[in-house]
């Protein structure tokens, strides 16, 4: 059984009486233990929708989302998951350590454990020097870093990251990439979404391409590049989207 799985996962947003927007259309994903899996797609292609459905923030119109074989509302499953939302934002008036403490307590961690991990994680994401700053003074990049630290407070088996490098400078991007590889080596399964091709190219073992709410391709980079006779990921990306648009005109 796959560690993360969606079965015909569909989300139709209802806007008003008669207006509907397709957020996600019958998506079937299987992510195995130990992978770094990248969801790639243009803006509005359904990446965030898919991740929110997996975590129970949104409810599917039809289909199923499963993590470790459990539905999105399963509290025990969530003990093993860390989530970093898109453009994360946290409680203005807390400091970084206070934020980690708050989340840590929700996992029933002991105060000593929380303190240990907080120190280690702040060091890891490069925020050890900003311990007393309240989050409202954080820059976008700092919020992204503290968000990553917060998503790791429970030492999760599974890490779900929505555009983890948006808002980071090139050095921050590289640090995050290295960190993800390191976490993966420690055995964590990572599911991330991105519209940065180079990022996905460098860290992901397998990718899925989303477009207009549809999963249009999935596989290893090598397989897909071969299949489309593409030169680069960018080339593959454009070709797969063009092919889909030809077959499914709006």
């Amino acid at each position: 059984m796959a560690l993360i799985e969606t079965k015909d996962l569909t989300k139709i947003y209802e806007l008003g009486w008669n207006k509907k927007v397709i957020g996600l259309n019958q998506v079937n994903l299987q992510i195995e233990e130990g992978e770094i899996f990248g969801i790639l797609g243009p803006n509005g292609s359904g990446k965030t929708t898919c991740l929110k459905l997996l975590l129970g923030v949104l409810f599917p119109t039809s289909g199923e989302a499963l993590i470790m074989g459990k539905g999105p509302l399963d509290v025990n499953m969530k003990k093993h998951v860390g989530f970093l939302p898109e453009n994360p934002y946290y409680y203005d008036y807390l400091t970084g350590p206070e934020l980690l403490k708050f989340y840590g307590r929700l996992f029933d961690l002991s105060p000593a454990e929380i303190n240990n991990r907080t120190a280690r994680l702040l060091e890891m994401v490069g925020l050890a020097g900003a311990k007393r700053l309240s989050l409202r003074h954080y820059s976008k990049g700092m919020l992204e870093r503290i968000g990553l630290a917060a998503s790791l407070i429970n030492d999760p088996k599974i890490l779900v990251l929505d555009e983890p490098t948006t808002g980071l400078d090139p050095i921050g991007c590289k640090e995050t990439r290295d960190l993800l590889l390191q976490l993966n080596q420690q055995g964590k399964t990572i599911l991330l979404s991105s519209h940065f091709l180079s990022e996905v190219e460098r860290v992901c073992s397998r990718i899925a391409i989303f477009h207009r709410g549809n999963l249009i391709e999935q596989g290893t980079l090598k397989e897909l590049i071969g299949q489309y006779q593409a030169n680069t990921l960018e080339d593959l990306f454009v070709k797969s989207i063009e092919k889909f648009d030809q077959q499914h005109p709006a």
Binding site: K52, L55, G56, V57, L73, V75, N76, K78, K79, V81, G82, F83, L84, P85, N87, P88, Y89, Y90, Y91, D92, Y103, L106, F107, G147, A150, S151, V160
Partner: peptide, 14 residues
């Protein structure tokens, strides 16, 4: 509005 709810609901709470 501040989207803190996303992180919170992803924690083991109902």
């Amino acid at each position: 509005e501040k989207r803190t709810i996303y992180t919170l609901l992803s924690k083991p709470i109902t």
